[in-house]
Design a protein around this nucleic acid. Structure first.
Lengths: 232, 232
DNA sequence: CGTGCGTTTGAGTGAATTCAACGGCTGTGG
DNA sequence: CCACAGCCGTTGAATTCACTCAAACGCACG
């Protein structure tokens, strides 16, 4: 199924179109952009699944990916969203405990880990980039754990919006690629609680919601206060 | 091999707590084991603090370290415990958003990031080890997020015990280095709920608690079921 | 125009929290 | 040796916040 093509020097001529680099990756990460193959995934399509061997290394070219753990009773936990420029597929060692799914129409570049690593051993920029990406993912994971611990619903939603803003905003307006269910499973809340909280924020004019996926920031500082702590 | 450039500044930064510094003992073995300096920290001593610049890379030689975020109203979130052999200090980019504290009497080896990286650029084993460690931390972080999402108290405690077992067990008996408060802040519960849950598990003879810090596994499979009842 | 899906809103319930008191261990000092 | 203080952990009772169950809404699409 998955098939790697063009890791050789010839592929280096190919340069993918301009993508937004999120703030956490320190320098331009074009390295996986010239290796491996590109694949398109439709909304909700599975990129890799739980219990599959973890063989590849991936990068989001366009769109959004969610890292999901599905439990037998239907509960779902989303441990990360990856957006354009992010590398992923390193959350597991040998077998995937998580699955990765396209949140929207998404374009992915992927390459065998072994191939990438072999190349990286000869190119310090590549291994440095790989490490920087892994570190960035680790930092986001720790940041996200702050939210999952002892935070109430308002704090979670406020932090979610503020975290997403720099990653996918266009001038104070966030176009969310993910559904309410995705947000709920990411925040450790139910869909109803997410909905109620957003409605309440809109009623208080902290945000505006022209449509359910579009969020405008109206009182940025209030949102920050809600995130940091309601009390005290 | 490598001299300790920059180590003295760092020592000053953290030496305010009572601890002793050791000269480089050539412990034949892993990579960070032969670089940098060793330091001892007493129980609850701070290794680095929130808002300090993130300059160093650390490894636990002996003992246990917790990564903590303290909020203004006193709430605390522990996002990781690091044990002997684990590298840490990569959870932040430039400034620490978290602090690191010794859970028990702990021995740490540390080195300037820049120094380690400079060396790693010339030694692929070192950068590989650094990446492997970062990846390991990322994997543990994702694993921990499963627990923090939508899990009830019993599932959290059961998973916590099972996760800790391979990391610090001696033949089915776990000697916990951390307090109930630490466990609670790690699991996103209150100290009372952790206590009640452990008591209940002991009453059901799933575990035995000869002392509050010592846990014996009596019905390992039952514990797994409690964890998986919703994890699988 | 109806069907289906995602989202919102409402009412009642429950699991973990908060508030409060108690028990056990350790070290200190009379 | 006992008395006491301090810390940590446990237990009890009442509260609360998010959850569950349920229904309705709005929009897209055949």
């Amino acid at each position: 199924m998955l098939h790697w093509s063009g890791v050789s020097e010839g592929a280096r001529a190919v340069r993918s179109m301009g993508m937004t680099e999120h703030p956490m990756s320190s320098h331009s990460g074009d390295l996986l952009d010239v290796m491996g193959a590109v694949m398109r995934f439709k909304r909700n399509a599975e990129i890799f699944g739980q219990d599959e061997p973890a063989t590849y290394l991936y990068r989001v070219v366009r769109g959004a990916v969610r890292i999901v753990r599905l439990m037998s009773d239907g509960r779902r936990q989303i441990s990360a969203f990856y957006l354009a420029g992010d590398m992923f597929g390193l959350e597991d060692e040998n077998e995937h405990l998580f699955s990765a799914e396209a949140v929207t129409e998404t374009e992915i570049r992927y390459v065998r880990r072994s191939v990438f690593l072999a190349e990286a051993m000869r190119d310090t920029d590549m291994i440095t980039e790989l490490w920087a990406q892994t570190k960035g993912n680790l930092q986001r994971a720790h940041n996200h754990m702050l939210l999952l611990g002892r935070k109430n619903a308002q704090e979670r939603v406020a932090k979610f919006l503020l975290d997403m803003e720099p990653r996918l905003s266009r001038s104070g307006i966030v176009e969310l690629p993910m559904s309410r269910q995705d947000i709920a499973d990411y925040l450790g809340l139910t869909i109803e609680t997410v909905s109620r909280t957003l409605t309440q924020l809109a009623r208080e004019s902290v945000i505006a919601m022209p449509s359910s996926r579009r969020i405008e920031f109206r009182k940025h500082s209030t949102l920050s206060q809600l995130r940091d702590s309601l009390t005290a």
